[in-house]
Design a protein around this nucleic acid. Sequence first.
DNA 1: AGTATTTCTTGCCATATGGAAAGAGTATCC
DNA 2: GGATACTCTTTCCATATGGCAAGAAATACT
Lengths: 192, 192
Amino acid sequence: MKKDFFQTIYNSPHIGKTDYEEIAKAHSQMDVRSGSLLLEEGKIASEFYIIEKGLFRSFVYDYDGNEVTTEFYGPKELLIESFSLFHRSPSMENFQALSNGTVWKIEYQLFQQLLGKIEGLREWGRTWATSHLFIIKKRSIKMLTMNATDRYLNLLNERPQIIRQVPLKFIASYLGITDTSLSRIRKEIVTT
Amino acid sequence: MKKDFFQTIYNSPHIGKTDYEEIAKAHSQMDVRSGSLLLEEGKIASEFYIIEKGLFRSFVYDYDGNEVTTEFYGPKELLIESFSLFHRSPSMENFQALSNGTVWKIEYQLFQQLLGKIEGLREWGRTWATSHLFIIKKRSIKMLTMNATDRYLNLLNERPQIIRQVPLKFIASYLGITDTSLSRIRKEIVTT
DNA sequence: AGTATTTCTTGCCATATGGAAAGAGTATCC
DNA sequence: GGATACTCTTTCCATATGGCAAGAAATACT
């Protein structure tokens, strides 16, 4: 059921049943084809997405114009560039579908209206923001303190399905190395 | 004037004069000696700080037990481990004074009360959270896309006073390299 | 099926960074 | 003023990672 899906996503003890119905109504379903972009660098995000089905990634361009994958996203995760969305400023990141999929989209204005009406949703937002901050901090610390092999093993452990479904070059740039190096690391691991 | 200070910190068009008086009253001044810790890993943050004077850093320990500096903080910046504070969970980070200084401290409970009373403060909080998220994302992208020399030059450009005042080993661990490497990089830059 | 495209691996060599240890320089303390 | 503890640089060598290019393997297209 549609309502249950949003209850899982916007999970908070202070959001009531009728609130979830209103939240559900504010989202619209959207099919996405593999490779398509849901947000492009430089544009202002006017909506965000909740993934129902499929695999996605966010990426930026480095100084040499190479794509650098910053995160992978799967079902029940949010595809949101919060700074661009809430500050109405150009996005730094790109969102791309890595497979065909289905997402639930919600417009900025509509979400702001819900935030104004539902205190529990504001609370959910604070929790999301602090948790997300925490996750990004942890990732950035890992980038600093672990070597490439350990980062790969860590990803393999935490998100095995990513490794299986995603082309090596995206995984490599996510780990901060070249696809050549990742290929060598894989070989090393297999033979160990 | 004390109130002006907090007006600069919690800057928001929707916070009134009397609100700022109440906010100012909720903070207490505290002198800090160089080297002392304001928060330790594993403890639950029960307060946060606004820096009036002095230089601070946050750091974590890597798998080998080495300290890794995650950020530097100067006057008018917040020393806050938001996840620990708002989720009442053990802190991942440590806060340390790198010089003698003065901070304004506010207790969790007191801040929660202010948040409950002042809508403008909640709005300020949302802005702070999204901006902070953005800053950390940018930093983590820099770690991925720039080499050590460029990261050093970038820091030198953005926060020259850090380079002048902070021991090289802290800067090195912030950049994700050893002090030996940073020393070599410095030499290379001077002769170029 | 057959061709084109993408993905992955491998080899060779260059460069960046690390680890350990020694020594020089600087600040601190009594 | 001298002892002590930091701080920073330097050297030697080891290891990790990158760049390029070729080829193999897998996948997509018609």
